[in-house]
């Protein structure tokens, strides 16, 4: 009972974000009943939200640990590229995925070494690596897109991004699994606990024997690998790779994380918040258009939703700190 009371009291941020989500969903149902009272739109969301959603979940861990990763759009392109190349050489999408994950992990190690080893603040280091990975990829690809239409015929394609039972987008299932896994990691695993303290008070973490350097590098590697996974899945979904892949994701991912209530100062944030944040950010565009407003409204509505949520979070955090 006590813990239930605690639960209500210490999760104000989650209640807020849930409320924002309900208001938005309800308004779409009222203004676009033809769309939002049928399952089609929700199935469409299940196919589009997971790609940025997975990255946002990983980014949540990065931000909680007091760091930030601005390089992921380029890492996505780089790992998408290695996916496409590995698939072209071996005709095996499985090997392609391994290559993409390895690329992501490598990018994570590079970020981690710059931040932990050379003590470059992550916001600066990852601007550098963002240019580097995009530049390297474009150079290697000669600026050209890669087509892989045949990948749609493979069983692995069906497993990763196919429509299970002829309706369920596989990526939604993977996204759900990844979200559950990361919830466990953050809330039940020692690594999650370590990264909370690294973000909250890194000198205390050091004094209490938390392996601060190792934890921070791990977080970047995890971030890189999830980015690689998402990059490979986008390639499969689209059956192609293109040099600007990932560029549209920057704002979506950070909007999802911060709308979800994760603190930019580190130490605080939830997987649930980011999940709802990703859904909110992912459903606005279609919602606006099917409500009969023109697409010109989209950006402004994004802006309003983001401003309202982050202000509510800021107010609540200040309030609860007495």
């Amino acid at each position: 009972m006590q813990s239930f009371v605690d639960y209500l009291k210490f999760n104000a941020v989650q209640w807020t974000i849930t409320f924002v989500f309900m208001v938005l969903l309800f308004s779409f149902m009222v203004f676009a009943p033809h769309t939002f009272l049928h399952s089609r739109i929700y199935i469409a969301y299940l196919s589009t939200i997971p790609f940025a959603g997975m990255i946002a979940i990983a980014m949540t861990l990065v931000v909680i640990s007091g760091e930030i990763d601005l390089s992921f759009p380029s890492v996505m392109a780089a790992s998408g590229f290695t996916f496409a190349k590995a698939y072209a050489f071996t005709s095996s999408p499985e090997l392609g995925l391994v290559a993409a994950l390895a690329t992501g992990a490598l990018a994570g190690v590079v970020n981690g070494v710059l931040v932990v080893g050379f003590k470059v603040p992550s916001i600066i280091a990852t601007i550098g690596t963002q240019f580097f990975w995009r530049g390297l990829t474009v150079l290697l690809a000669g600026g050209l897109a890669l087509n892989m239409a045949e990948i749609r015929e493979t069983a692995f394609h069906h497993l990763m991004v196919g429509r299970w039972f002829d309706w369920l987008p596989a990526q939604a299932v993977w996204f759900a699994l990844l979200t559950a896994l990361f919830w466990l990691l953050l809330n039940r695993h020692v690594l999650g606990d370590h990264l909370r303290f690294c973000g909250d008070n890194s000198s205390a973490a050091q004094m209490m024997g938390i392996p601060v350097a190792r934890t921070r590098i791990s977080v970047f590697v995890i971030m890189g690998m999830v980015t690689g996974l998402s990059g490979a899945m986008v390639c499969m979904e689209m059956a192609s790779w293109w040099p600007t892949q990932g560029e549209g994701y920057m704002l979506l991912v950070f909007a999802a994380v911060f709308v979800g209530g994760t603190s930019v100062f580190g130490g605080q944030g939830t997987i649930y918040g980011t999940l709802v944040g990703a859904i909110i950010i992912g459903m606005i565009e279609a919602g606006i258009i099917s409500s009969g407003l023109s697409g010109l409204w989209t950006r402004m509505v994004y802006g309003i939703v983001i401003i309202v949520s982050v202000s509510a979070h800021a107010f609540l955090t200040k309030y609860s700190k007495k």
Binding site: N201, S203, A204
Partner: peptide, 20 residues
Amino acid sequence: QDKSLGESQSIWRNFFMGRH
């Protein structure tokens, strides 16, 4: 002497900090 607690972490997490 210096604050060796994580302010926004829960009491139980702070109690077992670094050696869960």
